[in-house]
Design a binder for these strands. Sequence first.
DNA 1: TAGATTGTTAATCGATTAACAATC
DNA 2: TAGATTGTTAATCGATTAACAATC
Lengths: 211, 211
Amino acid sequence: MYEHSIRTVTTQTLRRMPYYMHQLKLLQNENVTTVSAPKIAERLNLNEVQVRKDFAAVSSSKGKPKTGFLISELLYNMEELLGYHNADEAILIGTGPLAQAIITHEGIQNYGLRIIAVFDTVDDNIGSEINGIKVLASDKISNLCRRMKIRLGIITVPAKQAQGICDQLIAGGVQAIWNFSQVHLSVPEHILVHDENFAASLAILSKHLKK
Amino acid sequence: MYEHSIRTVTTQTLRRMPYYMHQLKLLQNENVTTVSAPKIAERLNLNEVQVRKDFAAVSSSKGKPKTGFLISELLYNMEELLGYHNADEAILIGTGPLAQAIITHEGIQNYGLRIIAVFDTVDDNIGSEINGIKVLASDKISNLCRRMKIRLGIITVPAKQAQGICDQLIAGGVQAIWNFSQVHLSVPEHILVHDENFAASLAILSKHLKK
DNA sequence: TAGATTGTTAATCGATTAACAATC
DNA sequence: TAGATTGTTAATCGATTAACAATC
């Protein structure tokens, strides 16, 4: 079993990956062992060529004409690709309801993420616990990131504080930021910011309703 | 002041809208009255032509060479476009931490959304209150949607229940679904599903970290 | 063999970016 | 006037989809 694929895994492919995994697991639970791209495409309302290309991009071995792909192998390859087998460590900033929701989210641990520290800017919250994790003062962010080699920061603070927190994360050597604040963050070239912007989502939804 | 623009507002344009609005408000707070596309582009790390086209798509009057656009007008046009002036009514299904975070989210009311009812599938939660809203049994969903002419449903229930809830929303005549469950929802052509998939987001982030 | 499915090359589509003339 | 900025047309880019030969 060697590398054969030169197809690149694009962001769009990555985005579809969890949906594939869910379908594969459902089939696995029915004791099915192989599956074809068209079958998965139909279940997910996707184009079959797209699914085939996605599978080709992640699978460690080729699919068999007439049979398809080995489910267990595909699943393993996807989990490996997404790092489910070796969790990323992250810190979370903010202690509001959204922070609570993220920490307690059933999925997140399974998705290869471990939140190892929580910070807040509000004095009153510092020292309290959230899901068993002690809340630290935000001025310790860059220090802890550096010391623990943290590479992912999750921002849930209000708009006004977001860029400041972001800067501290960058100073701490963080490589990627999951941004739940509703504002644009300015970062150096090589840093990835992934925005989770409810206002943007609502913009799309409410435009659809205006017809 | 009449319609002049034939430029269509794409999904991507809509997605950027809240970021523009935030910048415009910041400038307005500094008593600035006009702004150019390149200025906003620089602040948001976007291409200036893209911003200019976006502005042209939403603005009710043309920009002036050398001056740019009137901030107050642009803001009004954007708010109008996104329906901030006449709120959509929505129902929310689920009472977990994520549901709590959505209901209490500072922004959401301002973004032209009013959550008028909350449902849950878990018997123990029914009748309790969440943020002052009484939690109803999920078998009443389609009825209430129809009666109140609800057009947006927000799904925060676990994966297994998501499609069932979705079907009830559709049966109730809902036109759009904001899907926080981690699974694909099958819906008729004309219904819009907007996925908020944490697993997909993490897939993108953790891939970036693997380099 | 026939037919489902694969992998790949080419065509299409949509969005972004570049180029440039018009204008205040 | 000169220069910043607009609006628009054309070029580029990336992703999706169509077409089709290869294969089990």
